[in-house]
Amino acid sequence: MGEAAERLAASDPFQIAEVGIETQLAVERFLHRQAEILDEKQWDAWLALFTGDGHYWMPAREDQTDGEGVPNIFWENLDMMEMRIRRNNHPQAHSQAPNNRLCHVVSNVIIEDEAANGDIIVRSRFHCAEYLRYEVRNFTGKYRHVLNKTDGGYKIQLQRVDLVNREGPYEYVLQWWL
């Protein structure tokens, strides 16, 4: 089990940390900026959001505590994310043509834990509309981020995304992260 997954599993999912307003604002701004990067397809900025060992994780089941060794909807490190960006931007990625648009709203931001070194565990809710092939479909769910505080600001060590309809069925494939 990775270090970040362990921290997330050990953290009380209903805890509310007493943090200063500055921290609350900085974390919210980070989450809003992540959503914007995704919606605006700023892929270099996307990759720069994660730590070197960072993972984007969408479990297939609620009771999963780790992405390693089990089926997931998403379980991607930087190499996989890079592959996805390259593939979706390839001219022959025909299921991506015409390209989709995403639009996120992130809210209900509650900081769960602030470590002595400034690392954060934060939970929030999101709604995302995806426009693809002239139709809109909607996704909604819960984020839990493990953020490392670095000189360059926060970096995502682990982002867990629990979709409300995680069991599917899926009408078609999720090609970008949500």
Binding site: P71, S95, G168, Y172, V173
Partner: peptide, 28 residues
């Protein structure tokens, strides 16, 4: 475990709801 992991990798890459492979099959 490594054999399980390798097959799991295929399962993820080819057939998960975020697959970059079957996405193109389904669309075709």
């Amino acid at each position: 475990e490594a054999i399980y992991q390798r097959a799991l990798g295929y399962y993820y890459l080819v057939n998960s709801p975020s697959t970059m492979v079957n996405a193109d099959d389904l669309f075709n």
